[in-house]
Amino acid sequence: MKANQSIISRISAAVSRVENLTALYALFFVVVAVLGLVTLPSITYYDDQLYPKTIIPESSLNPYDRGGVPFETTPVKAQYPENSPYVGYVTTYLTPLSQWLADHTHHFGTTIVAHPGGIIDEILYNTRGLDTVVETSILFVAFGIASYLFRRDD
């Protein structure tokens, strides 16, 4: 780099190299994060959250026991319950297998809830289903790219 270049040309020269792009973006982020660091202590946790967690250690569905009887509904604190008329039904649902597990064991709460039914499925499929649509599409597209590149080599 020549000495008589103006500061603007120097910046331009550094910025115009594609290899510096990542560093540039990261630097930009760091600057914002450092400036934001001072505001962090003022951010308080909002206590009245949607879909709150309740821990009932005695339950065999711990940590996902949200109450209710299968094929009945249970109160779920959704953002717009009026948009999902059947909200709460998935939350209480237990398949025969998970019902059996729930009756006989005490430490398999996660397995029971991961099996179809439960609060997470309620959120993922019912109230926030569009998120899951987008997300599976991302998976689809990303692997499409990877396999296209992978297969192209011959």
């Binding site: 967690k53 821990i55 940590p63 996902y64 709460g109 996660t110 809830v113 991961a114 997470i120």
Partner: peptide, 9 residues
Amino acid sequence: AYDEMLALV
């Protein structure tokens, strides 16, 4: 710490 077990798995 926040009992997010499914996310953990």
